[in-house]
């Protein structure tokens, strides 16, 4: 099958079980939200998929086995991620950030030349994430929301087919959230998107499917309505405020 397939994923830190046998299927083109209380293992799951932490079990994407590969090899298979606190190259301009993201496959000769103009995929990404106006500014001077968009833009030029977004709208204003939500819709046209999110309002509006995690396990899965109706979910998570 295509899309992301996670089976029996386990991560143990010094005896602490962070992920305790997670199973997850995200079909191609889905916008899957992963929610859960703090410490449920959401970010750890992304870390395991992208090779940052050691894990056992099985992670597959488009028929490729991911576990055990190095971080940069996994990235080359078309898996891209963002971070809770936006990680952009602050001293480089927006354009330079995007150009670097587009470049792991470049040959040595082209690396040793200066960039001339704007590569087409970079120009397209600038439009998509609405940063054309600030493309020559250092990324460090961008507003918080713009940095998150820049990261998403970097995933676009990287040509990632699986996007793992870690709390992309945390700290964003209302308008920025709406813009990000629309962006998710655009992204999912030819990509698979997995979003970790705490914002319930944002989730209701933009999630196609939802996975609820708790204590390193998948607790519930389904549409937003199905998940909200699940009594176990209400008990550990939604019950405390949203229902």
């Amino acid at each position: 099958m295509t899309g992301l397939s996670v089976r029996d994923l386990r991560v143990v830190f010094d005896g602490f079980v962070a992920l305790d046998g997670v199973d997850l299927e995200v079909p191609e083109g889905d916008v899957r939200f992963v929610i859960g209380p703090n410490g449920a293992g959401k970010t750890t799951m992304i870390d395991a998929i992208t090779g940052l932490v050691k894990a056992t079990g099985h992670v597959g994407f488009d028929g490729q086995d991911l576990l055990g590969r190095k971080v940069h090899r996994i990235a080359r298979l078309g898996i891209g991620r963002t971070f809770q606190t936006a990680a952009v190259f602050e001293e480089l301009t927006v354009l330079q950030n995007l150009d670097i993201a587009a470049g792991w496959g470049r040959r040595a000769v082209s690396l040793l030349r200066a960039r001339r103009g704007v590569p087409p995929e970079v120009g397209k990404a600038l439009e998509t994430v609405r940063l054309s106006a600030v493309r020559d500014q250092p990324a460090g001077t961008l507003a918080h929301g713009q940095k998150q968009w820049l990261e998403i833009g970097m995933l676009l030029v990287q040509d990632a087919r699986l996007l793992l977004l870690d709390e992309p709208v945390a700290g964003m204003s209302h308008d920025e959230r709406d813009a990000t939500g629309e962006l998710l819709g655009v992204l999912s046209r030819d990509r698979t998107v997995l979003v970790i999110e705490h914002d319930m309002d944002f989730l209701r509006r933009y999630a196609r499917t939802v996975t609820v995690m708790h204590a390193g396990k998948v607790l519930s899965e389904g549409s937003v309505a199905e998940v909200q109706a699940d009594p176990r979910v209400q008990e550990v998570y939604l019950g405390r405020g949203a229902s």
């Binding site: 080359r76 480089l92 670097i100 470049g103 960039r115």
Partner: peptide
């Protein structure tokens, strides 16, 4: 481009890995 990449590695070595 290599020079830009080198600065990126200097400032955020781990981040560069996730770009391949």
């Amino acid at each position: 481009r290599y020079g830009e990449l080198l600065v990126a590695v200097r400032d955020a070595e781990e981040r560069v890995r996730f770009l391949g």
